[in-house]
Design a protein around this nucleic acid. Structure first.
Lengths: 245, 245
DNA sequence: AACTATAAACGTCATTATGACGCTAACTAA
DNA sequence: TTAGTTAGCGTCATAATGACGTTTATAGTT
């Protein structure tokens, strides 16, 4: 027996996945399809975020975690509740209305939106029941509901946060090269960075730990691997506010 | 006739007011009192944030603006939706249950929380119907519901935001002195700052505009007044992400 | 008119961080 | 051996920062 849900409230999840090989920041979306029962014509055919209602006895964070577990099989990801959306007309496109009729759900819903950070390769997309697919943030498909708006705001939050908190490491493997890190910043922020200055800046941080390990299997000079130490980072800034306006 | 409301959803507002005279960051709270109808005993007597339900045809932002207008008479304040709260047990203290029975409201409510920034003197507290009162953030009274948690998280967000966005100017008059600004940072961040270095840093910002005006009526050397130019600030940073981890 | 208390505001110096570049090093594949 | 490719070291001028010392303008007091 499924638990009772709270009416009018949902949680939507923006899943950001970074692919270090293609240097692409992607969003995980699921397909929304509805066929006319008689003509078999596709009435609705687009993509949406994964989301669901909140159970009666569940915290919002738990709803988000549950949704993500169900979609990706993954737990323990970086998760941020970044904004709630509740415009009265946020689900009033033509296709949303068709969809809502068939699914019998309330069009005046407030959704609490989260984003998650991971690497694309962590998710196994074979035999996922939602037809989930990665899309580059720069090349999103047609989206249902107000989900383009939600993704854009998640992306803005991520961009801004990436400039003052060390969250990018959630999008990389534990061991990474300085150039991986630079590529990632360049993808997220859509900027070009001078490699020599970036490198100097990063290797001077105490919480970027050089390892006695190098890349293997590359066709050029193998790069040194580094790790991020959250411990050291937090010790350095626990009482230290740097005003940087 | 009052509009229909959306069940299970509310908006709560944390109003931060800065008092430059006392150098105190304050929160505006309203009194929550309930008397036993027979014995006249005070069953509930504490403070809470202002909040209300969302109307059927209203955006969340509009709800927040409406609540604040009703409480303070003010429009056009800096407003930020910073987090939503929906723990199943967020309203399950003994007093909240008593209160909810008498007010006939749903204890499983998700609230979308906003904070507002202004100067305490802007609000006229005479004849306000809610018995609203300012409390220093360092010295809050007993609070109902989960409102202490909400205030603390609003404060954390404000602290962090103040270090990388120029929002402190929302808490000061248009014309301010460098020392006003320093006092404000010190109050918010609970740190000590070297005046000479702070002054040098701020005066060199292009968006801190010196005026040909000085303080009047002070008993010591009158300080020069400055303004913050949002225009210049935004032009400087519209395409410029500074990585500062 | 001179003195005092108070806060404003200018200045110095050593160190560190930054932006803009030039150049060398290590690896694989041909 | 050589070419292609990416890693990574180095230099220089300028800007920003942290830690201080010193002077200045005002109102109130003597």
């Amino acid at each position: 027996m499924t638990p009772k849900i709270i009416p009018n409230v949902s949680v939507d999840c923006v899943v950001f996945g970074y692919d270090a090989k293609t240097k692409s920041l992607n969003v995980l979306l699921i397909q929304r399809q509805l066929k006319d029962k008689e003509t078999n014509e596709l009435l609705v055919n687009d993509y949406v975020l994964t989301g669901y209602h909140v159970y009666e006895n569940e915290r919002l964070d738990e709803t988000a975690t549950r949704i993500l577990k169900e979609l990706t099989g993954l737990d323990n990801l970086y998760k941020k509740q970044f904004k709630s959306f509740g415009n009265p007309n946020r689900l009033l496109n033509e296709k949303d209305i068709i969809w809502a009729k068939s699914e019998n759900f309330n069009l005046r819903t407030i959704t609490v939106a989260y984003y998650f950070l991971l690497q694309t390769y962590e998710v196994n997309l074979k035999d996922n029941k939602h037809n989930a697919k990665w899309f580059p943030i720069k090349n999103l498909p047609e989206l249902g509901f107000d989900h383009l708006e939600i993704i854009n705001q998640a992306y803005e939050d991520l961009k801004s946060k990436a400039t003052y908190k060390p969250i990018v490491f959630e999008l990389l493997p534990d061991k990474f090269t300085i150039n991986d890190l630079q590529d990632l910043y360049q993808s997220i922020l859509e900027i070009e960075i001078d490699n020599r200055n970036f490198r100097r800046k990063l290797i001077n941080k105490k919480y970027i730990i050089p390892l006695d390990e190098k890349q293997v299997g590359v066709t050029n000079k193998p790069a040194r691997l580094y790790m991020f130490s959250k411990d050291i980072y937090e010790k350095m800034f626990q009482k230290n506010y740097l005003i940087n306006i």
